[in-house]
Design a binder for these strands. Sequence first.
DNA 1: GCGACAG
DNA 2: ATCTTGTCGC
Length: 229
Amino acid sequence: MGRAPLHDWALTPGQAIALQRQLATRVEHRDRLDPVSHIAGVDIGFEEQGTITRAAVVVLAWPPEDPSSGPTLVERVVHREPTRWPYIPGLLSFREVPAALEAFARLTIRPQLVMVDGQGIAHPRRLGVASHLGLWLDLPTIGVAKSRLCGRHHEVGPERGDWTPLVDGDESLGVVLRSRAGVKPIYVSPGHRLGIESAREWVVRCLGRTKLPEPTRLADRLASRRGPL
DNA sequence: GCGACAG
DNA sequence: ATCTTGTCGC
């Protein structure tokens, strides 16, 4: 018997949960990343009443040449395919990762860091979409979610950059970060090959004037077909 | 049994 | 996530 496959998308929810428990043991919680020259952002959108899944990946040059205008977009890919799973809280990766992998396969640049729309280890079984994708890509990933899936936290300070720990019992899952004054905070958790501190630092470094860090913000717009990039 | 619940 | 109109504010 070898190790369980990194993914098998034809699973029942029960089998998917068992697979998550297996894969979670392979997630690396300590920093292991190469010098960063490119950061990718990933997000998934839907078309045709949800029957079509649309995966978008953007690659930004790092560090930015012109800090005032944010990092430069150097590559982008959109991949469409039939939707294969319904949305089930806790099993999001089985719906989104397959399409994201197809989009990554068409990238000519291999980024050293990936930011994903969703949770990393801040997940009931510690395998959110960012962690699952990170294992498959064998790249450091960070989960950047717009709302909470699990864990508890105190209220976050009002200033941009303020943050508070996201915890579950005695486990630290990530941080809740005020990415912009006056707006709901975002949930940042390591996906793979990164610690909580580094995950937070990278997200703060990629913050522009908006709520979401640039990689995720641009991927979001590309996935949902809104506004120019 | 009841409430919570990424996108 | 997506659908969907106007509205408030820089």
